[in-house]
């Protein structure tokens, strides 16, 4: 049996490695299951993968679930400022009632999770540090995700949308004063050449994005028991690897930025709370308004300790 897995990342990316690991282990299990990976958007544009997945035209993908927030508003909770504090907290999230609810919503679209995983990110400013909401007033900012845009706007920043690949030039020419993106993007786009101060994901971080390896449920059900078992076993190993590597990426970004002479400013617990208050009045509020059972889902997510 051949399964097709599409994703948008390059082959050096941790998310590709997670997919590759599942594919390799399944192949090694010798259960007549072959996972063919199409990396770097070679099959579908980045944001156009959930639809074919749910309609069975694609078997597997690794993607930020919030990309499908337009189809299932509840998914927007998987990229919400301040819901998750650090990677261990994120791992506890995966076993929570909240995640069960999200998975039951996926099941409506005929989608299931094989590997849970989060990546974290931080903020960087061209001329000054961005660690508390007071810092962003009057700045031109690029944020990753709509909930972050809403929160930053609430804090007095202005939002310019652009692809992460454009941040470097935009900062260089002065279109942007600051940006929020993932730890790995900060490094791979060499933003340390442009910024003065970096606020990484540390003991507390605002930006966590849920990026699971998903599979079409019918495709999974069509497999025989040995194949399903091999897939589950490989996924469990990949999930452990994913968590470790995600932590390493944050540390690696701090190392690279420090080496480049960029000032590192950790976010304090008080600043985290101030951001969360800001988010409560902006992104949380608009999420609850737009989503059926929004308040209940939000409370469930906030209740995970």
């Amino acid at each position: 049996t051949e399964l097709r897995l599409s994703h948008q990342w390059s082959t050096n990316d941790i998310r590709h490695k997670v997919a590759q690991m599942v594919a390799d282990e399944v192949a090694a299990a010798d259960v007549d299951l072959d996972i063919k990976i199409f990396p770097s958007k070679s099959l579908f544009p980045a944001t156009e993968q959930y639809k074919p997945l749910s309609r069975g035209q694609l078997d597997m993908t690794v993607l930020p679930l919030s990309y499908a927030g337009g189809q299932q508003p509840a998914y927007n909770l998987t990229l919400m400022p301040g819901l998750i504090k650090n990677h261990d907290h994120a791992a506890r999230m995966n076993d929570s009632e909240f995640m069960q609810r999200i998975e039951s919503i996926m099941a409506e679209d005929d989608v299931m999770v094989l590997v849970h995983g989060y990546l974290a990110g931080g903020f960087a400013g061209k001329d000054k540090c961005i660690s508390s909401p007071d810092d962003v007033a009057g700045m031109q900012l690029r944020a990753a995700g709509k909930a972050f845009e809403q929160m930053l706007a609430k804090a007095g920043g202005s939002i310019a949308s652009m692809a992460s690949s454009e941040i470097y030039t935009a900062m260089q020419t002065g279109v942007l004063d600051g940006a929020n993106t993932s730890s790995s993007s900060f490094v791979s786009y060499r933003l340390y050449e442009q910024v003065k101060c970096y606020t990484p994901a540390g003991d507390v971080a605002l930006w966590f994005m849920y990026q699971p390896l998903l599979m079409n449920k019918d495709a999974f059900d069509d497999l025989n028991e040995a194949q399903q078992e091999a897939l589950r076993a490989a996924s469990a190993n990949a999930q452990a690897y994913y968590l470790e590597e995600a932590k390493k990426e944050d540390a690696e970004s701090v190392r690279v930025f420090t080496e480049a002479g960029v000032e590192i400013k950790q976010m304090s617990a008080e600043e985290f709370d101030a951001w969360r208050a800001m988010a409560t009045e902006s992104s949380y509020k608009s999420f609850v308004e737009d989503t059926p059972d929004g308040q209940e889902l939000l409370d469930l997510a906030l209740s995970v300790q």
Partner: peptide
């Protein structure tokens, strides 16, 4: 199943 995707790929690009 791939034929169905043509408009989506077209639009997405």
């Amino acid at each position: 199943r791939s034929l169905e995707l043509m408009p989506e790929v077209f639009f997405g690009d």
